[in-house]
Each structure stands twice: as structure tokens, then as C-alpha cells.
Amino acid sequence: AEDTGVRVELAEEDDGQKSSIALRLWVEDPKKLKGKPKDNGAIEFTFDLEKETPDDVAQEMVDAGFFHESDVKIVAKSIRDRVALILWRRERIWPILQ
């Protein structure tokens, strides 16, 4: 995944089954963002892999004042890349576990 300057990681162990998963997001390189992010620290949130889109969460983070509107796409992409990796890993590992 491209380095967007925004890091998104799992905030819990992924059991491969739950649709809702805890993620943690923080700014690693503020220079890559257009707007100046509030000095947030790490933002932990729950994401529903089946029902929600990264764009929804990114917009909510902008509405909450964590990021500037001009960075909503970068935040959404960062979340999307991590979600894609989680789903990819589930597809590969889950059949083996079963």
C-alpha cells in the first residue's frame, strides 16, 4: 500500500469471523497531509467490514474535527488499504484454519 502518512492498524487480534473490528489510526507524517491535523494522537474506532465504507468513517473523522476536509480522501484511502489487507488475509488464512 502507498505510504499516505496516515497509519491504520488493527487495534485487536482478528479472529477472522467478526464483521466488526477495532482499528487504530494515527498521523505518521503530517507533511503528507494537505490540512493541518489536530494533534490527535491515535484514534481508535470500530469498523464494520460488511456494512460500512472507509469513506463514511473518513468523513465522520473530518466532521469530528480530527482532519481537514481536504484530507478526507487520504484518510479514506489509508483505511481502505488496511481493510483490504484484513479481508485478503481472511480469505487466505481462514480456509487453512478450517
Partner: peptide, 27 residues
């Protein structure tokens, strides 16, 4: 802890806490 802050937006809960020093990229 006092360092953790909870923010709600559009019904979603965001828990904000300091990023561990080890995870911040050297500027």
C-alpha cells in the same frame, strides 16, 4: 486515563489516546 478522550461523531465512538513514542516516525 486522563490521556484518553472519547469523541462521538454521527453515532460512532472514537477513542483518542497518545501514539506510543515507538510508533511515531522520526520527523
Amino acid at each position: 486515563s486522563s490521556l484518553t478522550q472519547v469523541v462521538h461523531s454521527a453515532g460512532r465512538r472514537f477513542i483518542v489516546s497518545p501514539v506510543p513514542e515507538s510508533r511515531l516516525r522520526e520527523q
